[in-house]
């Protein structure tokens, strides 16, 4: 019974507070007569959203599916693969890891225009920006995870005279999963930011970043907010999906059971 009550609270409480914020916002905009160009009321944003679902969908596909997800896939897989390589050789650890951390320090506003020059206006350059951004957190988290086994567990593998690959698959990768999912969660957040911001530096006439920057210029602030809503929902769903898979994969971890 108690479990159910808290579960209800878990959903009802944030919903209630969210609703309260929206109501206060609506009342404030109407009561103080704030112009649309400064802050549209939630109802106005909702109207614009409903009227532009076609455009919003095109922008969503361009930015989230093509730009962010593709880039995230490339960046996280590369980060994971490089982590496996670095783990295997001390030579690479000393040589590659500093280079990778240097890459992590590159500012996105500097990388994005260069990627646009290299890969063109379409989503490919956005995916490249995202890949660069998510690569490092994935690499570092995977490396930390691979080092997370204790001496006794590794000794056990040694008594079986297990090969490197065997102990990687049977012991170290499963033990690294909580860390790897941590990296993936960070990557989802970065991926959306990267894909949207990269469109400011050149894109075809679609995409969430493109829409936001042009609509601001035309004072279509309600459309800007509609795009922000799409971005917030995409980010939440993406993060939730990763968390769901994490729950399923690391069911054994004390934080999940």
């Amino acid at each position: 019974m108690r479990g159910q009550a808290t579960r209800m609270q878990k959903i009802a409480l944030p919903l209630g507070f969210g609703l309260l914020v929206v109501l206060l916002w609506e009342a404030m905009v109407r009561g103080l007569d704030i112009p649309l160009a400064i802050l549209p009321a939630p109802s106005e944003i909702a109207d614009r959203f409903a009227a532009s679902t076609g455009t919003l969908w095109i922008d969503f596909v361009q930015t989230v599916i093509k730009g962010a997800l593709t880039g995230m896939l490339i960046g996280t897989l590369t980060g994971f693969a490089v982590a496996l390589l670095i783990d295997r050789s001390d030579f690479l650890r000393r040589g590659l890891l500093p280079v990778a951390s240097f890459m992590a320090a590159l500012p996105i506003v500097g990388v994005a225009p260069i990627m646009v020059m290299w890969f063109g206006f379409d989503w490919h350059s956005k995916a490249a920006v995202v890949a660069v951004m998510v690569f490092f957190p994935m690499l570092v988290n995977t490396l930390a995870g691979l080092g997370a086994t204790d001496l006794m567990q590794r000794d056990l593998m040694r008594t079986y005279s297990a090969t490197h690959v065997q102990s990687l698959i049977k012991l170290r990768l499963p033990a690294a999963m909580p860390f790897i999912f941590n990296g993936l969660k960070i990557a989802t957040t970065l991926a959306l930011i990267g894909a949207i911001v990269a469109e400011y530096f050149g894109s075809p006439t679609r995409g969430m970043g493109f829409r936001i920057s042009t609509e601001v210029g035309r004072l279509g602030i309600d459309m800007v907010w509609a795009e922000i809503v799409v971005s917030a929902i995409s980010g939440t769903v993406l993060y939730g999906l990763v968390a769901l898979v994490e729950r399923w994969v690391t069911f054994w971890h004390p934080s999940q059971r």
Binding site: M152, Q153, D155, L156, R158, T159, Y160, S161, K170, L171, P174, A175, M177, T250, F251, W252, H253
Partner: peptide
């Protein structure tokens, strides 16, 4: 002998894999 898997080793802690 280790490579021949000549012995089983039991550690101080059970060290079972939780997954």
């Amino acid at each position: 002998a280790r490579k021949n898997r000549a012995y089983g080793y039991v550690f101080q802690a059970a060290g079972l894999y939780p997954w």
